[in-house]
Design a protein around this nucleic acid. Structure first.
Lengths: 198, 198
DNA sequence: GCTTTTTTATGACCGAAATCATATCCAAGT
DNA sequence: ACTTGGATATGATTTCGGTCATAAAAAAGC
């Protein structure tokens, strides 16, 4: 999101992460702005008894974990590498200075925060009021339309595993598997050797 | 959040709302920035079968429904007056111009968006993974600590109805009522003639 | 002060999704 | 080609919170 040369100019460092490595833990103080160069990062929570909720899965180019930099609050979730990854790491104070000196970057960030709020508002309403079929379709359609920008008419091959869909919708894997089957039977999505098409 | 004189200067209008009046509907295009002068506004969703989820309840002074102004997306929820209310209404383009010309206001807004993301991240993780007791305590503690800024040691008198707590946590009234009782029995909160103290 | 409405309360019952157990399929690595 | 670990699949059983019905208490309206 922030151009590489700008990050470099403000003293950002590149750091490498191994798959499954945790970049920061829940309930710790944020000290850096992070932006992905390669690999994917997920932000997630675990309940007392180990159930996971995935707040978001971020592809190369995206930043993550910025909100608490603005309020001196601890992280409400942890960040974990989905694959091996490389990320930019920029000191909090430098980041805030960069925003001040580059209003166009600040506006970009505002747009990013706005779109995250849009996703969260959509999903939390789903999770708290709708059944598994509805939740899954909403998730899939959200990814199709708002993340991959695929037109309604074109097919979208879902890149998420059943487990990831479960952890994004607050369901269990078995429920996702059964619900996907039932949605296929109803013609609401297609299956091509276990891959979901919608 | 934005000072009254600035809003006035950019041509904002005051509009009055009756209790339960809907200011904007879900899936419609945002055209204005709104900020509350008096009364409370809630943003909420209804599922197919009428179950409500409350995204947020906003007191005087707060703005709401700004995120989609930055992305040309439709509202993901509706806005409804909880009491009779008066709100500032500022044309989208004027609002964006105001932000551009007043970076300190823009930064304030960023902080507001960040704190909303913090709340949503917290609650969606709760709703998707935790049991009623845990959810309710988290909600109550969130209001106590982050909204009313009451120190741990001081008691907080919950201002929410059982129904509102239910609609904020994805539970049903009966479950909230029963859970509150059980939390009292465990000494995790106190009851003073039906009012919750924590 | 009395009526109406809203909020809180409680018991009985039900059902959807979670849980548990086990199996099969598939992709990655050697 | 073979092994291993992860992902998908499926049946049986359980459970927690939802649903339904009804009542009491409190608040709001007149």
């Amino acid at each position: 999101m922030i151009p590489d040369d700008l990050l470099d100019q403000y003293g950002a460092q590149k750091i490498a992460l191994k798959k499954k490595e945790v970049l920061f833990h829940i309930d710790t103080q944020p000290r850096f702005y992070f932006q992905i160069l390669s690999g994917k990062i997920k932000m997630n929570n675990y309940s007392e008894d180990g159930k996971e909720y995935i707040q978001g899965i971020f592809p190369p180019g995206s930043s993550f974990g910025e909100p608490p930099l603005f309020q001196d609050l601890d992280y409400p979730a942890q960040a974990e590498a989905v694959d091996d990854a490389v990320v930019w790491k920029l000191e909090k104070s430098k980041f805030l200075q960069l925003l001040k000196e580059h209003p166009e970057v600040h506006l970009e960030l505002t747009k990013v925060l706005a779109s995250r709020l849009h996703y969260k508002a959509t999903m939390v309403a789903e999770i708290s009021t709708e059944n598994p079929e509805h939740r899954l379709l909403k998730l899939i359609d959200y990814f199709k339309t708002h993340i991959h920008h695929i037109p309604e008419s074109e097919p979208y091959l879902v890149e998420l595993s059943r487990q990831q869909m479960a952890d994004l919708t607050g369901l269990r894997v078995e429920t996702v598997i059964r619900t996907v089957k039932s949605l296929e039977k109803k013609g609401l999505l297609q299956l091509q050797s276990h891959k979901i098409l919608r």
